[in-house]
């Protein structure tokens, strides 16, 4: 099946925190067992061995479980940031990673508004690690993403983004008292392919960007970056122009001095030239003395 925008909708009210998605992900993507590395605050944090994990969301109404993994943004900051294009937004939606060209600059980790990419610091040749929405499994094997397939309560479902948005809106409409009237991922940083609905507020959790803004991150940098060719040319023209003008003025001054020298026929030309230089630097040299 051809997808236009592979997406996942997670209903926080249905998640029981059983970790089966985590185990399914580990098995499908051949991830190593969890180990307590120095840089992990908690062994169940997102890590090399966990491309998805269950976060406990504390709220007044009691604790909730929410599955955290790559949000597969519609305009992904990591893809824009990647220096060699190792991260790519596929036409079907998932953001995938090519480990054969990644140089390990870790700019994607800095740029990601959801703090998703992890680094396998423990390896001698480390790579960036993140969910790929089981891209090849879904595209070539026609299966569901491993986590969705493993979910026993259908808390996390897979489909086209428009369909899932419609489904989310339907759920919000049918049980307005239960849900917070918001679909997380609909508009943040330009929209994400991974959507959440919940009966508690997900704001200020790790699932939410800390900076509520709907501007896609790539716009922030590219807005400046796409002016760079112009800046280069303008700078070259300005510098070249200044150089040409001053060079010419000095040449003329030297000629005049030479003429004056000939007329007077006394002072040596070398002496004259130095004087002219000094005078010239005095005029063009804005700040001089005080």
């Amino acid at each position: 099946m051809i997808y236009r925008n592979m997406s996942i909708l997670t209903d926080v009210t249905k998640c029981i925190g059983c970790d089966r998605c985590v185990e399914a992900c580990r098995e499908t993507n051949h991830l190593p067992p969890d180990k307590p590395w120095r840089w992990l605050r908690n062994i169940t944090d997102l890590s090399t061995s966990r491309w998805t994990t269950i976060e406990r969301v504390k709220s007044d109404a009691g604790d909730r479980f929410a599955r955290r993994h790559c949000r597969h943004c519609l305009e992904p900051a990591c893809v824009e940031a990647c220096i060699v294009g190792a991260l790519q937004k596929t036409p079907e939606g998932p953001v995938i990673y090519d480990r054969d060209i990644c140089i390990g600059c870790r700019y994607c980790m800095i740029a990601c508004p959801f703090e998703i990419p992890r680094y396998s610091w423990e390896d001698r040749v480390p790579y960036v690690q993140k969910c790929n929405l089981c891209y090849e499994r879904v595209k070539y094997e026609g299966k569901l993403p491993a986590c969705v397939e493993a979910c026993p309560t259908e808390a996390t479902i897979f489909g086209e983004r428009e369909d899932l948005l419609r489904e989310a809106r339907r759920r919000l409409a049918t049980e307005p008292g239960k849900y917070v009237q918001q679909i997380w991922g609909e508009r943040e940083v330009g929209g994400t392919s991974v959507l959440y609905i919940s009966d508690v507020d997900l704001e200020l959790t790790d699932l939410e960007t800390k900076f509520r803004d709907e501007t896609p991150v790539p716009l922030r940098t590219f807005k400046v970056l796409h002016h760079m060719p112009e800046v280069f040319v303008e700078m070259a023209v300005v510098m070249g122009g200044i150089y040409w003008v001053i060079e010419r003025r000095e040449k003329l001054a030297a000629e005049r001095a030479a003429q004056a020298g000939e007329e007077r026929g006394s002072a040596s030309p070398d002496q004259e030239e130095e004087d002219a230089d000094a005078a010239d630097s005095g005029t063009t040299n804005g700040p001089k003395g005080s």
């Binding site: 824009e80 940031a81 990647c82 220096i83 060699v84 294009g85 190792a86 060209i101 990644c102 140089i103 390990g104 600059c105 870790r106 700019y107 680094y119 040749v125 480390p126 790579y127 790539p218 940098t221 590219f222 970056l225 760079m228």
Partner: peptide, 22 residues
């Protein structure tokens, strides 16, 4: 960078939207 011998990769892997590439 994580994989030091790939420091030269930006020479032939081009990504014009990346600030780091520029």
């Amino acid at each position: 960078i994580g994989i030091w011998w790939r420091i030269v990769f930006p020479i032939w892997h081009w990504q014009f939207h990346s600030t780091l590439f520029e």
